[in-house]
């Protein structure tokens, strides 16, 4: 395989459409390889993820975009037989350093999953769970504040403020997913990973989540895996295209969708395969 870096590699030639922020990248991945047993799922991927931006991972099914997302908060640790090589740093800390605590890492890198998965507990307890286990609050009042703030940020507060003790599973799909986002931001992470967060939602709920992402990027680094190219185009500032475990191309969203450098990217976004 050829080296999958295009001219859009950050630092070398910033794409004109969206100027890169002046600060250093939040997440730096270099030569990352992932194996599931014998299967080489991610091949030598290097990428920079910037703060206060939405970065979209796109690509056909089984291309490794979800796998790479899960590598970033070590959710792959749970999977038996998964092996990761290469170096990934979050604000300078090597996240695969054996001395690094994975619990701490996941507090810094929150995650929202494909299927809304609220705990079968009350709405309040769902949001309060993270702050509780990390001991972020000293009093009930402080916790109440965090819950309210998180639900407000997730644009869910007005819908649920009168029924915080109802089970989170009783909400609609879109509300459940926003609850999961509130749950993730209650821990105040630096990065939020979203693994196809809208694939189980209807268009209206999807629009709400996308709107929310746009707002959240003021404060958080957001990485979203999506099957929908329109969604990537709508919400992200930077887009990375994965194919068969390779990172084919990464660049500003506009550049990827209008002037892809790689033939495979072009084929994919024009719908020739996928």
């Amino acid at each position: 395989m050829e080296t999958p870096f295009s001219s859009a590699q950050p630092g070398t030639a910033p794409p004109p459409a969206v100027p890169l922020p002046n600060e250093p990248p939040s997440i730096v991945a270099r030569n990352v390889n992932v194996w599931y047993g014998d299967k080489h799922a991610i091949k030598n991927v290097s990428i920079d993820i910037y703060r206060r931006q939405v970065t979209a991972f796109i690509g056909p099914s089984g291309c490794g975009k979800s796998t790479f997302l899960r590598v970033l908060n070590r959710m792959n640790d749970i999977i038996e037989g998964c092996r990761v090589t290469g170096k990934i740093t979050l604000d300078g800390d090597d996240i695969y350093d054996p001395r690094l605590d994975v619990v701490q890492l996941r507090a810094r890198v929150g995650m929202v999953f494909q299927k809304p998965n609220p705990f079968p507990k009350s709405i309040y307890d769902n949001v309060a769970y993270g702050p509780r286990i990390h001991g972020l609050t000293r009093s009930k009042k402080e916790l109440d504040e965090i819950v309210e703030k998180s639900l407000r940020r997730a644009a869910l507060w007005d819908e649920v403020k009168d029924r915080l003790d109802e089970p989170g599973t009783a909400l609609s799909g879109g509300q459940q997913q926003r609850l999961c986002i509130a749950r993730a931001i209650a821990v105040s992470p630096d990065v939020i990973l979203m693994d196809e967060p809208c694939s189980a939602l209807d268009p209206i709920a999807t629009a709400k989540i996308e709107e929310l992402m746009d707002e959240l990027r003021q404060d958080y680094t957001i990485i979203i895996v999506t099957h929908s190219m329109q969604q990537a185009a709508r919400v992200s500032q930077r887009t990375a295209f994965f194919h068969l475990g390779d990172l084919v191309e990464v660049g500003s969203t506009e550049q990827i969708f209008t002037r892809p450098q790689d033939r495979r990217t072009q084929d994919y976004i024009t719908g020739r395969f996928g």
């Binding site: 507090a107 929150g110 999953f113 286990i133 990390h134 821990v187």
Partner: peptide
């Protein structure tokens, strides 16, 4: 998915098992 949600929030294995 429940385990994943808890792990994703930074729960330790023990917390995932006992709480969820």
């Amino acid at each position: 998915s429940i385990r994943e949600a808890a792990y994703g929030l930074g729960a330790s294995k023990m917390q995932v098992v006992l709480h969820h």
